[in-house]
Design a protein around this nucleic acid. Structure first.
Lengths: 122, 122
DNA sequence: ACAATAGGGGAGAAATTTATCCCTATATGA
DNA sequence: TCATATAGGGATAAATTTCTCCCCTATTGT
């Protein structure tokens, strides 16, 4: 695991939520776990653009931050299931608010994003 | 400016909001602009941990994504003021939801974050 | 003359995050 | 016997983001 050279700022609520949710795939992981996709392999199939490695790392971090728990079944082949903790469940409505804003403004957002992407190569 | 080598995924609302809000200081910039801190130098004083350079870059991106507008006053020394656009104003309640969640769970969050930070050095 | 203030950009270093590749173990099915 | 599925870690490369340093403009105050 990478060891930080500088400490994060934790002054306000925004800093705190940023510290536990900042990560390319964490929000989606929480979302899909909430939808019932609990096993690592299921989550990897739901998020094919992420490498297996990073999903594991981010799942570990979510667990250390007590947003999810991991249950290991002592069977072969191995079976693991993640669930939201009490704290994790409370963050779902916040994620829903993010997704709703994106959905409601989909047209304009796609427009400005693609405009910026195409002007990048200038 | 950095030129991306891989394109972002823009499948759902979460991807879209991520694309315009992902950046270490963007949420805070929007928040402080909404609170009335409009000039770059004011924003830099409000966010002293960010380098001047990155704030400029992220302000530019927010402008290109049409969340804020820049008004330039033709005076010397130069004066610039940012304001939220119509789209930018609609994202403020979403940011508030993030901050509220962080505030409401401050105790537990500080605990788990510091636990993880201290175990990093093992 | 010189520093301070205001806004901003370029180059390159450093930090951080994500991706790739390889390796572990066991059971089942072809 | 060999591939597949399952979960996951180590080492290292690559991508991406952020930081540091330096430079430019013009005015006001010391």
């Amino acid at each position: 695991m990478y060891e930080r050279k500088s400490l994060p700022n934790l002054n306000c609520g925004l800093d705190l939520i940023g510290e536990v949710l900042y990560g390319k795939w964490k929000i989606r992981l929480l979302w899909f776990i909430n939808e019932g996709y609990k096993r690592p392999s299921e989550l990897q199939r739901k998020i094919p653009d992420a490498s297996r490695r990073v999903l594991n790392i981010q799942l570990n971090e979510l667990e250390e931050h007590e947003l999810i728990t991991r249950k290991i079944y002592p069977v072969v082949p191995p079976k693991v299931e993640y669930s939201l903790t009490k704290l994790g469940k409370t963050v779902i409505p916040v994620i829903a608010a993010l997704g709703n804003w994106g959905d409601q403004n989909e047209g304009q957002l796609r427009s400005v994003i693609s405009k910026r992407l195409s002007s990048e190569s200038e």
